[in-house]
């Protein structure tokens, strides 16, 4: 894959309706985005359909991408993940409510930090090491595979409320670590 700056330049040209840049962007990033669709949807046909929708969205939303400080690959993968997760949720609607159980003690609320986070690939890995390994695994597979609380609970053989608490505590710990 080309460097991020080249990908960002391609997205900029796509925003100007440059079809050659769109084709080049596709050839550069489609293997990564297809992989994301496939990991979440776990079906090649559905992943291919999703990839089409994802690139239609990229064409339509390229103008909204502001290169300032943001990772272009993170932006592109987010479009692929969000679309795939939406397809997954529509395919298997779950009735689980998330209204209760919000009040979880914040382990160490960090100071208000308005500074824009600079993306560092390794920072999340360092913070993940501070979590119990099974909880870190649950967080990672939730993200990578788009699993629901129910599916995570089954995979880890714990009640759904336990899984919910695991993940929420883990998110707060991660937030605290990432803001440190």
């Amino acid at each position: 894959m080309a460097p991020e700056s080249d990908i960002a330049a391609l997205v900029g040209r796509v925003a100007l309706r440059d079809r050659a840049a769109f084709a080049e962007l596709y050839s550069q990033v489609s293997p990564k985005l297809f992989s994301a669709c496939l990991r979440i949807l776990k079906d090649r046909g559905e992943a291919e359909d999703a990839l089409q929708e994802v690139f239609v969205k990229i064409w339509q939303r390229s103008g909204r991408f502001a290169a300032a400080g943001n990772s272009v690959m993170a932006w592109l993968v987010t479009i692929a993940r969000n679309h795939s997760i939406d397809v997954l949720r529509a395919r298997r609607p779950t009735g689980e409510s998330t209204d209760e159980d919000w009040q979880i003690a914040d382990p160490a609320p960090g100071p208000e930090n308005a500074a824009v986070m600079k993306w560092e690939g390794k920072r999340i890995d360092r913070c993940m090491e501070e979590l119990d390994s099974d909880r870190a695994g649950a967080v990672r597979s939730a993200y990578v595979e788009g699993l629901t609380y129910q599916e995570l609970a089954e995979r880890h053989a714990v009640p759904i409320n336990t899984m919910r608490t695991w993940l929420r505590r883990s998110l707060l710990k991660l937030r605290e670590c990432l803001d440190r």
Partner: peptide, 30 residues
């Protein structure tokens, strides 16, 4: 902020070539 942070997990998406027909389908759509 979360999107930027958790994008570190994107390394788990190992590149996988989509079917060769996909791009022409996207072009036909757009």
């Amino acid at each position: 902020n979360w999107q930027e942070n958790l994008a570190g997990f994107d390394t788990d998406y190992e590149e996988q070539a989509p079917p060769s027909r996909t791009y022409s389908r996207i072009e036909a759509r757009l």
